[in-house]
Simulated scan of single mutants.
Amino acid sequence: MPDASETHYRKPGRFTQHVANNLVASFTRAGISIWGSRVLEVKGRTSGQPRRVPVNLLSHEGRQYLVAPRGETQWVRNLRAADGNLDLLLGRRREHRTAHEVADTDKAPILRAYLRRWKAEVGVFFDGVSADSTDEEVARIAPRHPVFALDPLA
């Protein structure tokens, strides 16, 4: 986990918090995935209560990943505190999963795939880096965007 001097977080605006996230979460809860959307449920690190947030589930080279385009979000902190234990919700379907944080040096192909899929939605959070950026540019922003590999279901 990065120390406070390295922590990066881009807080969502009012529209995102109160309209867009609620809209995507509503569709996802109804069983309609929008480009791989799921509702992530993880135990709150302080309250212990389940916390839910819409996320983009990335499938890449036979694995599934969660990427935090906004950086050190509440869901990232909660997931770390919950030792990677989470549920992904789509309609009435609940998948119990375990996540492991990906090392910064291994993030480049995952971030490229994420940007290729959702650049229109999240590109602004990557400081001008795109799926076609140089390896050096992707490596520069990698520490600012937590990535979690999800273990396959048993």
Rank of each mutant, 00 (worst) to 15 (best):
R38I: 05
L88C: 03
R29S: 13
V39F: 01
R77P: 10
G36I: 12
I110T: 08
R144L: 14
A30E: 01
R140V: 05
L111C: 11
S130Y: 05
E136M: 10
V39E: 06
L111W: 07
Y9T: 12
I110G: 06
V102S: 01
I34S: 06
Y114D: 11
Q64F: 09
F126P: 09
D151K: 12
A20G: 05
R70Y: 08
H145G: 03
D106F: 00
L40I: 02
A103E: 14
A99C: 07
A30P: 01
V76L: 00
Q49P: 00
F27Q: 09
L111R: 05
I141A: 02
S59R: 13
A108H: 00
P143V: 10
F15V: 15
L57P: 00
R38C: 04
N85T: 10
G62V: 07
G31K: 03
L88N: 03
R97L: 15
P146S: 12
W35D: 13
P152R: 10
V53C: 08
V55D: 00
R112W: 01
V55M: 05
A30I: 01
A20Y: 12
D106V: 08
A103P: 09
G123I: 09
F148C: 11
H100W: 02
V39W: 00
R117T: 14
L88V: 01
R29G: 11
G31A: 06
L86W: 03
L40R: 02
V19M: 04
N56W: 14
G91A: 04
G62C: 06
N56T: 11
D3A: 05
T73G: 03
A4H: 00
P50D: 07
D135C: 08
E72T: 11
A139M: 06
L79I: 04
S26F: 14
T105D: 10
K119R: 14
L88A: 00
R77T: 14
R45G: 02
R70I: 04
E6G: 11
S5K: 01
N22C: 07
L90I: 12
H145S: 01
R97Y: 07
S59M: 04
H8F: 15
P109F: 05
P54Y: 01
A113D: 07
L23R: 06
D3Q: 05
E61T: 10
A149S: 08
A25N: 02
L66T: 08
Q17T: 03
R112N: 07
V76P: 02
E136P: 13
A81C: 10
V24I: 15
Q74K: 02
P2L: 11
A131L: 05
E41G: 03
G36D: 14
R93S: 14
K11E: 15
D3R: 07
Q74E: 12
P12T: 01
L66E: 09
G36F: 13
T16R: 08
R29A: 13
L40P: 02
P54C: 04
E72L: 07
V53D: 07
S130A: 15
R70S: 13
I110P: 02
R117F: 06
S5I: 00
P2F: 01
A154M: 13
L23S: 14
A113N: 05
P143K: 04
H60P: 03
Q49C: 00
T98C: 02
F15P: 03
A81N: 10
H96P: 04
E121N: 14
N78M: 02
D127G: 00
G36S: 13
E121T: 15
R116F: 10
E72C: 09
S5V: 03
V53A: 10
A120Y: 14
F148M: 11
